[in-house]
Design a protein around this nucleic acid. Sequence first.
DNA 1: CGCCGGCTTGACCACGATCAATCGAGGTGG
DNA 2: CCACCTCGATTGATCGTGGTCAAGCCGGCG
Lengths: 241, 241
Amino acid sequence: MSVKLQLVEPELEPLSTRSGCGKTTQTLRTLDHHLRVLRQFGAQRHFSRNQTIFREGDPADRFYRVISGTIRLCRHAPDGRRHIAEFHLPGDLVGFVDHAEHSYTAEAVTAVTVKSYPRNQLERLGASDPDVRSRVLMHLSASLLSAQQHLFVLGCRNAKERFAEFLLRLAERTDVLWGAPMELTMGRRDIADHLGVTIESICRSIAALKKDGLVTVPNTHQLILNNVAKLRAVADGRDAL
Amino acid sequence: MSVKLQLVEPELEPLSTRSGCGKTTQTLRTLDHHLRVLRQFGAQRHFSRNQTIFREGDPADRFYRVISGTIRLCRHAPDGRRHIAEFHLPGDLVGFVDHAEHSYTAEAVTAVTVKSYPRNQLERLGASDPDVRSRVLMHLSASLLSAQQHLFVLGCRNAKERFAEFLLRLAERTDVLWGAPMELTMGRRDIADHLGVTIESICRSIAALKKDGLVTVPNTHQLILNNVAKLRAVADGRDAL
DNA sequence: CGCCGGCTTGACCACGATCAATCGAGGTGG
DNA sequence: CCACCTCGATTGATCGTGGTCAAGCCGGCG
């Protein structure tokens, strides 16, 4: 069967024209093109706020593409501590790692629509198409780099620096126009658990940035970056020299 | 050309019989088997303590296998802070990520022997052999999982817990017999920069574990794990309930 | 309107960073 | 062979960031 010719029915999401310059998201998006041949196997599902999409330890026979909403990948310690490894935004791929079981729990941060695809179909596709293989590799590499980048942040940076870094990365991934408000779809608690600090430290970081005029906070779930260059300096610890 | 039949000349390192149960190292080792067909392209090199093997930003046209010694992958912040993403031990593969440039600097912790292979040869090999492809994927996935595991530790754990976790992971990767001394090839400073704490905190963690009888320290570069179960409890924060 | 959950702010405290002094092993030279 | 030097490890004293606890605050929703 000639799967490669199955390019009818263009998707509806605006994935082609993006101004974001992050290499990570770049490779994620381009892989998307190839997924169109998998459309016939894709199942669309809907999740409401805080629902679980899949759990740590579940068989990982399918992977997901985020259509709308935000997903968090998290792991729970027995004593209640939680760590969020990554947030996934529309266009991102989730559950792509080559293992029999999911190593993270995926939960809906907001209301979420995903499409899921069977992994063995992708493998079949990869067996015949070197381009698909290459893009799978690129995606995995990008995920690894992203994780290592975050490792660096958690290993070296203080609370304020971590939060500034988080804002910049989020701005890169969502196509915010400079000066326009950016959507903070996740709550403070989620951000805190992602950055390895407490919710209070997040609030204090916001307050500090607000006082210095680097950001404006119209409301809890929106934020405006007033000075990206200075924010970058804060994130890199080049702030108070 | 029939690369698959090129199985002459067995390697000298003891890679086949391992008692270690870590899934991470497992997949790293098994990929090794396939690298033998790359022997003809492999170049052996030697590095002394603290020498640089490759630098962040260098073209990543070759990847490396550690024959002997320990390597650290690190990144330097402009203000002098340093983070060590990973240590690599004999048998490990380094510089495997699918990017044009290395994203980390690799340095020799001890005297090191590596074999380097051209990446395009591996790609050529992968084009014809699905098994090689599968193992490359497994290796990347394992690296990603390892990074995420470390993310979890840096995000949630305190100094003592991080150090206990580090010891257990190291014990898993090196084939220490329970009760026998484990080699700590890296210095305190390296461990500290890996765990995101200071060198003094490492010393105090060691002192605390020693006082509780969980470890014995014959000398600076050796350490005996006396009670793995309790050490595991400490690492997981199930220590003082 | 009043409740409820998430956010914010302040007061206090502790873990770990910083600074400083000492120890100890390995290496070099007299 | 020992004295000396150097570098890393260790331990103690002090300080500060960020965690903890507690009290408002705000916005959404019944």
